[in-house]
Design a protein around this nucleic acid. Structure first.
Lengths: 123, 123
DNA sequence: GGGCTGATTCGAAAATCATCTAGACAGGTG
DNA sequence: CACCTGTCTAGATGATTTTCGAATCAGCCC
């Protein structure tokens, strides 16, 4: 399957960065993390992501008909999610199945933790 | 202070959506949430967001010099974060101060909760 | 093998975006 | 008031993105 273990993906897989609200990211960290948020920044991809994440796994054939878009377009968006490291795909016979990558997903969530401090009201 | 309480912001401010991993978003929900992720999907904005979120508040004059970009470009990115509802700004005399909007930030984080279930391994 | 269906890749068109310079506005200070 | 500094708006430009149809690839079945 996907051989593309680019340096980028390695950094993503490596634990990266305290929550945004704890310590500011440097330029390199931001360059690693931003593409993951960017991948979720399109309504179609966000919906795809939510459909994938809300079940153990799901076939492309069940994703495509939920949208008013061509197959290639859905395929393109899935590729963006894949290359961001957020989901994984596996061909089984005729169909291709997608599943969330829990580590990446969780790490992204951890970045958005807001520890009750560091808000203007609390200054 | 910024008067722009657009309808979009109202929807964002309203509690929206179970975590992605719990229930898939419909098209309307995705259209509301995606711009927030999109705003974080640029390395410059992500860094700006982390600089703002990691302190109670911060002056534009302290943000700009951290980047190798023109003032107007930083201003543009801050506007995107503002319009996504993620930060708030307030002019105090000569300077403009930015602060995170904890509700929006927290809601975004909640969307990325991953409840240990709904992963392929757990099927 | 030949044909079928599901999914991806390719190439192109239209829309959006990041960035800049120039200019406007806001507020302080002499 | 005139001027200076900090910030934002306007308009332009090159780069990126979204989307499509056409073509290709993968695996099944007759």
């Amino acid at each position: 399957m996907s051989k593309q273990t680019l340096p980028v993906v390695d950094l993503q897989t490596a634990g990266c960065c305290a929550p945004l609200a704890v310590r500011a990211l440097d330029a390199d960290q931001a360059a690693v993390v931003a593409p993951m948020f960017k991948a979720l920044g399109d309504p179609v991809r966000l919906r795809l992501m939510s459909m994938i994440a809300s079940v153990p796994e799901i076939c492309v054939c069940d994703l495509t008909p939920a949208f008013d878009l061509s197959g290639p377009t859905i395929s393109h968006h899935l590729k963006v999610l894949r290359e961001a490291g957020l989901v994984d795909s596996e061909r089984r016979g005729t169909w291709v199945w997608y599943a969330v990558r829990p580590e990446a997903f969780r790490r992204l969530g951890a970045l958005l933790d807001l520890p009750d401090t560091a808000t203007r009201a609390a200054r």
